[in-house]
Design a protein around this nucleic acid. Structure first.
Lengths: 218, 218, 218, 218
DNA sequence: GATGAATGAGCCTTCATTCAT
DNA sequence: CATGAATGAAGGCTCATTCAT
């Protein structure tokens, strides 16, 4: 167990080598893995359960994925891809800056406070100590990249004279943090079992926009 | 099935070993548990490792704690107690509101971004799915209570006419979230291995205070 | 491994837990369990020993049986089935009542005083306190049912005018108890290591028949 | 641990050697052991439970008894002594042979079908395989000796011309077996939780006497 | 002598992984 | 290729026994 996740992953494209890899079956396995990992966490999830949930044999799991960790990493990667779709588009759907930020913040919160994303975050955070590469990659390609994209948007608005921001990356993260205030943390700790209501999302994001513009608006 | 376990349980007081508990040994065990749990997470940590790290026998673990989960919960409780000490006092150390908020935010960040707190958060979040009570209690007695205490402080300032806030709890959480922007999340995902520098903390908290007062100051 | 695909398919969907159970391996495990349980008793028998005695891995035990208790119960059930075969048939093999009783009593004693049955009795009695259901079921399906079958036989003879019995169940048990006098008890306590000789069985059962007919004969 | 129970017992009067052995405390320990062993059986009983039940520390147990097995053997010996008291006296209390046998059989059954004796039998039978000496000694000093004493009584009656018996030992065991028919076996297997009623005892023993005299009476 | 905290061997059970079919 | 029976290495936990106080 001295090999890190990274080293293993780099050792070869193991799950691309075999000719007969059926993409449908791969998806099927990941679906089962998604259900079991989210419900149980990484350690408590058993390969047997995943095989059963996926409707394949345990042996087949190992045809498509080298081991439990590789299966998990592949799943996390798929989830990340699935989530980033379409949220940032809302930024440019509205010419009014306040409205654009509000719509974006609301869409993002709907996503991040949902069961799906919360489970994924919990799991990745939970294993981040033992699988630092997974944690880092998840963070960089997820939250960090999102912040950068928002920062780019803000920079454009600065350029247009609509905002006065010194550090656009910090400002982006500030907006993101404000947009989830009181909503995400209790979800992460499982202190709130239900996603926030639409009303709550609107209220919190509205307050975030107001605060953001009070500070950075021109 | 009337199994042995039942008969055994019937026989004796399981969590009433209060008699000869040596506080030093208890602390010693918790120290070992702290090291192993933080390094491995809840599931990956083994009682054998913990026993070795604590310098006691495996059996002794079970003299002091009923099982792995109780040991873990006791550890988390100790960490929480250890952390809440002295942070909120900084709020009243300065008559100048901006300075007070800044000092408080900085002290809090020094704590929350430290290895200690980050590990604790990671691990609790990681098991929150399977141990919802632990997650909820940790959240309520930790982050939520902290927010309430800050909200009370803000309410007092509102009363003094120094701030204009409608929802003081939301405002408190907003300030807390702003104070950690860009610093806590990468730590949680293990994307940043070192705690933020004093300079970074000062810079981010200063920006948080500025934003907060831009919105709620009178 | 001698098992063929055909052999596997023959086994049928007979088991509630796992589909593909190899009857040969199941028998193999039960044989190992028989040896170890009989030699050590329920508690002192370890699953490791049983696995070794059966020539399978410890894990395999749990593929075939949910836990130690289930394995033990399955073993006891098999022993019971194995024993009840063919003893009662001797009752109707002889038209002469005295001969029929004698042959039956001798056949039964050969069985009950054998190592096999004695071990089974010892172990069931030993766990009867903690596993009352097992003890009761063993008694009801074994000794009690045997007594009922003999009672039915006696009732038929009463009807034929060959016997005069008020309580046929009591009479049946009396005959069974007389047939084992001096032979079974020392075996149960392990005071006699060898099964009784054929001569001894004949002598004791003859005395039992004589006594029985002296009381109930017409 | 290669020494057998016998070897250990013979190795020396270990629990008589120490000057300060308090007989009261010894009795106290045996009382606790009685309660726990009878309720749980030999293996499931723990020394901690016994210590708690006896109101002494675990260490004290080992001052009075070398180990768990010695404690158990000492307990069984005490129980045996306690039980044999006064039952055989009933044999000579009545000049009428039928009455004498009936009173004796009833007194014996009251004893043997009681919770106390049934538990003791169960335990000894249960460990007889692993502790053959204990089983043998218990049998020889208990049931077998009882049979011999009854056989002596019967021999006297034969001499008086009141009975015609060839093998008095066999006859004695036959009477003992008849006296417990239908009553003892279900108790041993824990299929009957309550001791038999006085009526049942009288009825079964009466039938035993009748049968016995029908065969051996003159 | 009495205590009970500490020990460590050993138990039952689980599960990721392999391999013959 | 898919299968799933089989494996074996831990893991959590218990308990008879010891020993410093």
């Amino acid at each position: 167990m001295t090999k890190t996740a990274e080293a293993k992953r780099k050792s070869g494209p193991r799950n691309r080598r075999v000719a007969g890899m059926d993409p449908d079956k791969r998806r099927q396995i990941l679906d089962g893995a998604h259900a079991v990992f989210n419900a149980q966490g990484f350690d408590a999830a058993s390969m047997s359960e995943i095989a059963a949930a996926a409707g394949v044999s345990k042996g087949t799991l190992y045809v498509y994925f080298a081991d439990k960790e590789h299966l998990f990493v592949a799943l996390i990667e798929r989830e990340r891809e699935a989530q980033k779709i379409g949220v940032f588009e809302t930024l440019n759907e509205d010419t009014n800056l306040a409205h654009a930020l509000a719509h974006f913040g609301e869409a993002l919160m709907r996503l991040l406070a949902g069961d799906f994303a919360v489970s994924a975050h919990r799991i990745v955070i939970g294993v981040a100590e033992r699988m630092p590469d997974l944690g880092r990659e998840f963070y960089e390609r997820g939250p960090q990249q999102g912040a950068h994209r928002l920062a780019d948007f803000l920079a454009a608005k600065v350029e247009q004279g609509l905002l006065a921001i010194d550090d656009t990356y910090l400002a982006a993260v500030q907006f993101l943090d404000l947009s989830q205030s009181t909503m995400l943390r209790p979800r992460l700790f499982n202190a709130k079992r239900e996603p926030p209501s639409e009303d709550e999302i609107r209220r919190v994001v509205a307050s975030a926009v107001e605060m953001f513009l009070a500070r950075y608006g021109t």
